[in-house]
């Protein structure tokens, strides 16, 4: 019985992950109240969906469906006994072997176990000319025994009895980078961020300021030294990602803390102004009023204390 319940819980987690893969972050796995590792996974998936929905995809989820660039066309020429007679120059590198090792080799020995019967069934049709251009997905066993799944076409040639087998996606990640399509996928906006500072280090600056909100804000020069960048990139990258300046963000955060302190403690307003990093109370009061629309003294009167 317990096993059956656990299976249902696993099914719910799988279903949720599938929904997320498709861009749906709205679902949540029902909680069972059990305290075990499976429940912990369920909570993590739920919380991650929430984070992703609101932090990562807040501007909308889009799937470019272009993660793979089918550019490295590895081609094999094979005779009717599956013996490799020739191949394109990139093949040895892809499979992690030398040209000599490949020549005269049985092509099926390069295929993953599951792909061999599939390939052989199709082969008869090809050789008997029933079909002259077939597209199937085969697994090539590459270097380090990793399988490289790839769609390929198998077709007859006019001038010879050999058969040409061409793989599409059998390219490594580093070659994908060079593909022309990748650059086109970046929008002008994204390129702009890339030129400033990558989003991750901008987030690091943001987190640093939050973590050190009680100390004086380091100058742009100091910040750029801490994060190994230059002032221009830092300033513009921050503005671009968070839509505010570093100084403004720092002030806003300090004012928010000051607001809490005013509401829920009896610390004198003047002291709170100093705690919020302002040199005089009027400066603090002015900034506070601009941010919240009322002055600090108005707020204190509303306090339940």
């Amino acid at each position: 019985m317990d096993q059956e319940i656990d299976q249902q819980r696993i099914n719910a987690i799988c279903k949720m992950l599938l929904e997320m893969a498709e861009g749906n972050f709205a679902y949540r796995i029902p909680r069972t109240g059990i305290d075990d590792e499976l429940e912990a996974v369920a909570v993590l998936v739920n919380w991650m969906a929430e984070e992703m929905k609101e932090s990562v995809f807040h501007s909308g989820y889009s799937n470019p469906h272009q993660s793979y660039q089918y550019i490295a066309e590895s081609t094999f020429m094979v005779d009717n006994k599956f013996i490799i007679k020739d191949f394109s120059v990139n093949v040895p590198e892809l499979l992690g072997c030398t040209s000599n090792e490949l020549l005269e080799l049985d092509f099926t020995s390069l295929l993953s176990k599951e792909s061999v019967p599939l390939f052989k069934t199709l082969w008869n049709d090809i050789v008997e000319n029933k079909s002259n251009n077939t597209i199937i997905s085969l697994g090539l066993v590459g270097a380090e025994k990793l399988s490289i799944p790839a769609p390929c076409t198998i077709c007859n040639l006019v001038g010879s009895t050999e058969v040409m087998i061409t793989f599409f996606s059998a390219n490594r990640i580093d070659t994908t980078e060079k593909a022309i399509g990748v650059r086109e996928m970046l929008t002008a906006e994204e390129l702009k961020i890339k030129n400033y500072l990558d989003v991750k280090s901008t987030q690091a600056v943001y987190d640093y300021i939050l973590a050190n909100i009680d100390s004086a804000l380091p100058t742009l020069k100091e910040l750029s030294r801490i994060f190994g960048t230059n002032e221009y990139k830092l300033k513009n990258g921050f503005k671009h990602v968070f839509k505010t300046t570093i100084q403004q963000f720092y002030n806003d955060e300090r004012l928010k803390r000051a607001q809490l302190l005013i509401q829920y403690t009896r610390i004198p307003l003047k002291t709170i102004a100093v705690m919020a990093g302002f040199s005089t109370y009027p400066n603090f009061s002015r900034a506070f009023k601009i941010k919240f629309g009322y002055s600090p003294s108005d707020l204190e009167r509303q306090s339940p204390v």
Binding site: D35, D36, A40, W47
Partner: peptide
């Protein structure tokens, strides 16, 4: 103390 709390707090 509990597994679940540990995971929640780590997150």
């Amino acid at each position: 103390q509990r597994t679940l709390s540990m995971v929640m707090i780590s997150f």
